[in-house]
Amino acid sequence: MKKLILPVLAIMSLGTATAQFNLGVSVGYGLGSPGHVLGTTTATNGDQKNIYGTLGNGIQANLTPGYMLGEHFGIELGLNGFFGSETTIDKSESLFGTDRTTQKSTQFRIAPAFYIRSGGEKFSVYARTGLLIPLLGSVKTERNDDSAFGLSVLQVSSTSGKVALGYTGAFGFNIHFGQKFGFFAEVGANSLRVKSKTTEVKTSTVNGNDQLESTPEYFKEITYVDELNSSSNNFGYNSASSPTSAREELRQVANFSNFFVQIGIKFTFTGD
């Protein structure tokens, strides 16, 4: 990270004499793509089909400070909040009801990027490309199961991820209302995949009765690893596993890639 930040700060300090500091505020929506298999739907008669998609569907809100180091070239540091839509990852129908599992995510991400725009006092077009780095966030998984007669099960868990590095890019246009204020709109894409780190069960009820307190730690927490063997805390591989410790499972990868559209306003402050 230091290798990335230091050159950017150096460029900013060299250009402050002629730089235009700007601040953008924008909001948009992302459509998850390209999709992969999230799970399956199973009909009452046993027919199955795949569910395709990503966890990249959702609202993006951005605060973007930047420097224009001249008329055409600049750098930005996007501060991005992502609020994912609920996505079904598994569904099974029975004569009595449905067993359905959904996921949605919230993230805070930074997006250092390079920015190029055309000239023009009233109108300009631009392109930007850079990195997408999630700093905070989790995936909420909720399972509602009333597919068995007289039985209703609810389980809610939260999964955190490892540090990840993604990519972002966009094309757009600016409409300038004088030198200090403007409107912009853009289309773009994010490519981001995050490896799972831990999962913790937050809620577990059966017919409305809490089960979490009496559930062994082994079934409430998961630590994700890249290999399972005879020394892992997993009864499928090690009969001496501890029920009072988090169980180990193979690491998973969540896909947050999407195509997005967004609109915003930009304030420009010209340096001396």
Rank of each mutant, 00 (worst) to 15 (best):
8 V>L: 15
46 G>N: 00
244 T>Q: 11
81 G>K: 09
13 S>K: 04
236 G>K: 10
232 S>A: 14
221 E>D: 13
135 L>T: 05
80 N>G: 05
8 V>R: 04
153 V>W: 13
145 D>K: 07
170 A>R: 01
4 L>V: 14
162 K>E: 14
166 G>P: 08
43 A>M: 08
5 I>D: 03
68 M>T: 01
235 F>N: 06
84 G>T: 10
104 K>A: 10
177 F>T: 13
156 V>L: 13
250 L>H: 00
12 M>N: 00
65 P>F: 03
222 I>G: 07
142 E>M: 12
70 G>N: 06
159 T>K: 02
264 G>E: 10
168 T>R: 06
109 R>E: 02
117 R>M: 05
162 K>F: 05
115 Y>V: 03
151 L>K: 11
60 Q>F: 08
209 N>C: 08
250 L>Q: 01
141 T>L: 09
33 S>N: 07
161 G>E: 10
220 K>L: 06
260 F>R: 02
212 L>K: 09
89 I>Q: 02
259 F>T: 12
164 A>F: 05
31 L>W: 12
218 Y>M: 12
72 H>R: 07
187 V>G: 12
25 V>M: 14
66 G>P: 07
217 E>D: 10
25 V>I: 15
24 G>R: 07
212 L>Q: 05
44 T>C: 07
137 G>F: 02
80 N>K: 10
98 T>M: 04
89 I>M: 03
175 I>Q: 03
228 L>S: 05
256 F>P: 02
8 V>D: 05
247 R>G: 09
165 L>C: 06
255 N>W: 09
242 S>I: 06
173 F>W: 14
16 T>S: 10
2 K>V: 11
14 L>R: 08
156 V>Y: 04
221 E>H: 09
24 G>S: 11
161 G>S: 11
97 G>V: 02
157 S>Q: 05
257 S>E: 08
249 E>L: 09
16 T>P: 02
63 L>H: 06
24 G>M: 05
229 N>C: 02
267 F>C: 00
85 S>P: 01
181 F>I: 05
120 G>D: 04
118 S>Q: 08
100 R>L: 05
69 L>F: 06
240 A>W: 03
252 Q>I: 04
70 G>D: 04
18 T>P: 04
261 V>P: 03
198 T>C: 00
245 S>V: 01
215 T>R: 13
100 R>C: 00
173 F>N: 14
75 I>N: 03
46 G>R: 01
140 K>Y: 06
140 K>C: 06
206 V>L: 15
212 L>G: 08
179 Q>L: 11
254 A>Q: 12
84 G>A: 08
224 Y>F: 15
190 N>Y: 01
40 T>E: 14
271 G>M: 09
215 T>V: 15
5 I>Q: 09
254 A>Y: 14
48 Q>Y: 00
1 M>N: 13
199 T>N: 13
255 N>D: 15
197 K>L: 13
222 I>D: 10
47 D>Y: 07
